[in-house]
Design a protein around this nucleic acid. Sequence first.
DNA 1: CTTATATTTCTATAATATTTGAATCATGGA
DNA 2: TCCATGATTCAAATATTATAGAAATATAAG
Lengths: 113, 113
Amino acid sequence: MEIKSVVTALAALAQESRLAIFRLLVQAGPEGLSAGKISEALGIPPSSLSFHMKELAHADLVSSRQESRYVIYSANFRTMNELLGFLTENCCGGKPCKPTATSDCAGIEETQA
Amino acid sequence: MEIKSVVTALAALAQESRLAIFRLLVQAGPEGLSAGKISEALGIPPSSLSFHMKELAHADLVSSRQESRYVIYSANFRTMNELLGFLTENCCGGKPCKPTATSDCAGIEETQA
DNA sequence: CTTATATTTCTATAATATTTGAATCATGGA
DNA sequence: TCCATGATTCAAATATTATAGAAATATAAG
């Protein structure tokens, strides 16, 4: 994954509303959710939601498909996985961290200044 | 890890200079690097660097220690690991993704719209 | 064709972030 | 003390991002 893409993806997720949107879409799975449902579920006005969806789509973290008069958004797991791959490579100096066991990287860690 | 912390950490890394700084510090390991070394290595003016280091420190992604007249920065692997843990939980609907094998999440993934 | 519904685009405003030179502060040595 | 070095803070300009109502667009149904 290219640095630019990494920064774009991180920026897309580095915002409370968008992180919430993405989490919701991950929960929803491949079927996804309509813009309206997301808007309602998170209490984000439609125009604001549209703005955020554009950010997420630009980062390739979500895809959209038209279904009758609804626009359905779904999470792009592949991109998220690539992002996690990049971050893992760049944590622990390349050694893979098992994210479930929060102790893997801790070995290299200093006692904190 | 709390949502606010996650957003703060993501925002800290969602900037080209800061991502480069963090990667450099990960490479450097627990010994860390002085502000001057980072500044020189990445071609970032001291005052700009200071600004970025404050962001990273605020996100608890780096620590600093004074060493004679140098300020030495080092990566906080623990925080990075916690961040990865959170993101992993929120990708693939809770199922841990092996970040080295970029195919783990792909099973759930749709064919992209 | 008209109306209702879903979503996006437009527009303006407000809030945050970034960049850096200059000034300031801190530490160590002559 | 005085000077040199390393780093941070200040200040001011610039750029980017976020918010949300109103208008426009798209689809479907009567």
